[in-house]
């Protein structure tokens, strides 16, 4: 490796950093949100009207739901997103629905999740594709019918990062494999974190083959349903805003005796995939 070749760029960066620090010292307040546009986007106005009409939405209070999203999408194809409940799932009051919305994606409604008190916690983690600088939002509907929103502005990736899958052949070769993972110990009566993973290209169908001038047909997961001990605890409608090999982390509350986690996944060609995990064992 030739270090002299590296140094100029390192030095350039130091100079740039020194400049940035000088600016920051002079402008202590403006820096953080300098490139954050107004959250009242055209897309949001449309989605809000479509999904929620004139219902009031508590905006960005952080008391019911929070959004965990990176400042910058490191990899445009795999942007980790966390929908975090700030309230417990009790039969008296719980989050019954979460929407994950991405203003600038071709389909802004990336996912909606239906949850129950048996979910234990209304926390969902997944990964999305993201092409442009955009607001990402979560809207939670509590069982009393109230709506709460949290949002973050996420910057696009640089370099050669693109929302497309990296290895379509590998994804297709493994198509439909569904895998459960338990994250940590299973404790009776306590919300336990689990993960369901689906091997699928989750293709948008928006990519035109320049040789044939034909569009690749869309092929994506549209529904994921997870049940524990025979009761549905998470039911999700999703689309190709979700990354290749869709992945969802969720909670469930293990009960006494045996119980099974089951996942049923339906894609846009009506192919159905499923998996079952008997508790006490780990793996698939």
């Amino acid at each position: 490796m030739s270090f002299p070749a590296l140094l100029p760029s390192a030095l350039r960066r130091l100079v740039a950093l020194a400049g940035a620090l000088a600016c920051a010292a002079l402008l202590p307040l403006a820096a953080q949100a300098a490139d954050e546009p107004s959250p009242d986007t055209e897309q949001w106005t449309g989605v809000r009207q479509y999904l929620f009409a004139d219902r009031p939405i508590a905006d960005n209070m952080g008391d019911v739901v929070e959004l965990d999203a990176p400042f910058r999408a490191e990899d445009a194809a795999v942007v980790p997103i966390g929908l975090k409940a700030k309230v417990d799932q009790t039969p008296g009051r719980y989050i019954r629905k979460l929407w994950l919305l991405v203003d600038k994606n071709p389909t802004p409604i990336a996912a909606s999740f239906e949850l129950t008190p048996e979910s234990g916690r209304a926390d969902i983690e997944t990964r999305i594709r993201l092409e442009e600088y955009t607001w990402v939002r979560v809207v939670a509907e509590t069982s009393d019918g109230q709506l709460h929103m949290a949002r973050k502005f996420v910057r696009a990736a640089g370099g050669c990062s693109a929302p497309a899958g990296k290895d379509m052949e590998a994804a297709l070769a493994r198509l439909g494999k569904v895998k459960f993972k338990l994250e940590g110990e299973v404790q009776q009566g306590k919300p336990t974190l689990a993960q369901v993973m689906v091997s699928h290209p989750n293709n948008s169908g928006m990519q035109m083959d320049q040789v044939t001038r034909l569009f690749v047909p869309p092929h994506y997961i549209r529904h994921v349903e997870v049940a524990y001990a025979g009761k549905v605890i998470m039911s999700a409608d999703v689309d190709f805003s979700i990354s290749e090999n869709p992945n969802f982390r969720f909670y469930f509350t293990p009960q006494a005796g045996s119980g099974e986690l089951t996942a049923k996944v339906v894609d846009s060609k009506d192919l159905t995939f499923s998996s079952t995990l008997s508790l006490g064992k780990t793996g698939t």
Binding site: A162, A164, Q207
Partner: peptide, 12 residues
Amino acid sequence: LPAAVAARRGTY
């Protein structure tokens, strides 16, 4: 290559 670039053209 052609398929990979087709899938990324707009982004690039």
